[in-house]
Write a protein that binds this DNA or RNA. Sequence first.
DNA 1: TAAGTACCCTACCCTAAGGTAAGTACTTGT
DNA 2: ACAAGTACTTACCTTAGGGTAGGGTACTTA
Lengths: 105, 105
Amino acid sequence: MNINISDESCPLRKTLEIIGGKWTMLIIFQINERTIRYGELKRCIVGISEKMLISQLKFLCDKGFVHKKSFAEIPPKVEYTLTDMGKELLPLINQIIQFGINHKF
Amino acid sequence: MNINISDESCPLRKTLEIIGGKWTMLIIFQINERTIRYGELKRCIVGISEKMLISQLKFLCDKGFVHKKSFAEIPPKVEYTLTDMGKELLPLINQIIQFGINHKF
DNA sequence: TAAGTACCCTACCCTAAGGTAAGTACTTGT
DNA sequence: ACAAGTACTTACCTTAGGGTAGGGTACTTA
């Protein structure tokens, strides 16, 4: 690995632009291996606004991290799951968590 | 591991508050295993302003990720190195980079 | 009949992260 | 004499990420 110039196109910057948002990893980590409905997700992530959750979910769907399944039911039912690419981030996020625990953040 | 409530004190949030900044990981990755002077660091990280680099370096020193050594010379000479805790982040960052490469970000 | 649930959308606003640019002090090179 | 390199500081300004708050639909339950 010989990345030593951090220009605008380096993979670290590019990746952080996508997963570096305030809520991105939180959402991905909460979905995790399960299938979860919008409402439950919202309750899990304390402090997030509906606007943020919706827009981030849409963003993550567009980028291919999250899969969305809407049911034509009343009341509405929407289920979110991680795609394979999304799941690839889980070990990464777990490492961040482990780091935080180890250093008592 | 049973973290399923993402409240304000969860280790993921806490850690991201520290290493989730726009430049944090870039700086840590650039310092890497070497000893590097301020000027060279600045040249490495394309696009960063002096203000940001200085303030982030100070922040990272305060948090214990980076070690700073000033020489009482003229012209000034300052060397930065990662602490052990800082170095612990390198495999994490490398994973992010690998993720970006794998998915062609 | 009114309130509640579920999954959103939209308009407006605000703050803080970050960008710009200039200045400082001291020395060496031309 | 003047620019250039070194490691910063400071003042000011911009912007976009995110917060607030309200609306909307179609149904169910009290």
